[in-house]
Design a protein around this nucleic acid. Structure first.
Lengths: 211, 211
DNA sequence: AGGTGTGAATTAATTCACAGCA
DNA sequence: TGCTGTGAATTAATTCACACCT
């Protein structure tokens, strides 16, 4: 996960190789751990022709990226919809990293499609078209950027529309409709973590007991 | 962390009490674990007058919130600045949950302050005023919403300006200036987690080996 | 020398079982 | 009876040490 981010950064700088220690420093963990985790990458294949990294010199950055992509499911392209085209939704619609990782925004939805006309490059549809467009554009993932009050309800409608995954940007805990996987991106969580570290007397550097 | 979110949700619905099992279901963990974690809350005090939750009936929601606030450092108000007033920065500036958690946005910064004039309620300053304003407004936390290419450089300048914590919204790994704690809010991380679960054959429900 | 792969040892996190209070 | 608090047992995650390739 984080490894992929680091590997991408190295690739962007045209570095060919990376050692476990470098990866570890960048990812904020120990080098032993990196090697253990990376060892798991080759398990699903079950063929023992490994040598993912070369002894002596580190790992091949591009090969590493490729393997991580496979594991994370980033090799097949995903179609996503953004539900709630407020400022946040529109900002995310043009987020440059999306295309890098094989996600394409196929549609936006809003109760008032006219309000965002001309401000973004994606087509914005009214909520009533949800089921229709999701099927037509083969959308599997939805970004939930609606006001917190309606998040749970909209999530339900997304489930009915046939969406398989929801990325929740609201500060609400939403319990997943059946057959739908929900992940949350909570600004507040990161912010709380930050204030925890700045405030705490014995501020450890490790994630610690912050559940 | 997540517990706080759940407790807040209960408080909003005017529920007075919550059991460990309810908390567990909402937070996606087991009830044993909730009780263990909550047990750690009273350690720093070292007084044994506990009874944080009452046996027989669950925990008092408001008391729980209060204790969690203390632990997370949410009792003292934080002054934050938003650096990079693009669409994302402006969207975050008016994010309603910020005030709920005692964070107040005191200033925005951008290379072109004029561009965002009139679109947001916070005062936007040029980057050159950084040190001055940070000191004047007693800003301890900065939100980094600049383009990824300049993120590392701006982070350095924030450190020099006296900021103690950075919440990084860019998809870059930035290594912290000395004395500064960095937390990242990465949309992509959540998205990758999502695609991992939707793609994986044996999609466990646990976080799993996704580092 | 420099750096990976992996089994054994250590350490931490989770679960379980049950005592104790409302 | 219902639900918390906590020590013991289990399980998973991290670290360490060292063989082995380049």
């Amino acid at each position: 996960m984080t490894y992929f981010r680091v590997a991408s950064a190295y690739a962007a700088r045209h570095q060919e190789r990376i050692t476990s220690r470098e990866l570890a420093d960048q990812a904020g963990v120990t080098a032993f751990l990196v090697r253990k985790d990376l060892g798991h990458l080759k398990d699903p294949d079950l063929d023992l022709d490994l040598e993912l990294g070369t002894r002596g010199a580190g790992y091949d950055v591009n090969q590493l990226k490729e393997r991580l992509s496979e594991r994370l499911g980033l090799t097949t392209p995903w179609h996503v919809a953004i539900v709630g085209m407020g400022r946040l939704g529109r900002a995310i619609a043009d987020y440059p990293s999306l295309i890098d990782y094989n996600f394409t925004v196929r549609a936006g939805f809003d109760i008032d499609p006219a309000a965002s006309a001309g401000t973004t490059s994606v087509a914005v549809h009214p909520m009533s078209d949800l089921g229709h467009i999701v099927a037509k554009e083969q959308i599997t993932i939805a970004f939930l950027t609606v006001p917190a009050e309606v998040a749970q309800e909209v999530a339900g409608r997304l489930g009915e529309a046939g969406v398989r995954g929801i990325l929740n940007f609201t500060p609400t805990v939403i319990n997943p409709p059946s057959g739908v996987h929900v992940e949350s991106v909570d600004f507040m969580a990161g912010l709380k973590r930050l204030s925890y570290f700045l405030h705490a007397p014995g501020a450890d550097d490790k994630p610690g007991s912050s559940r």
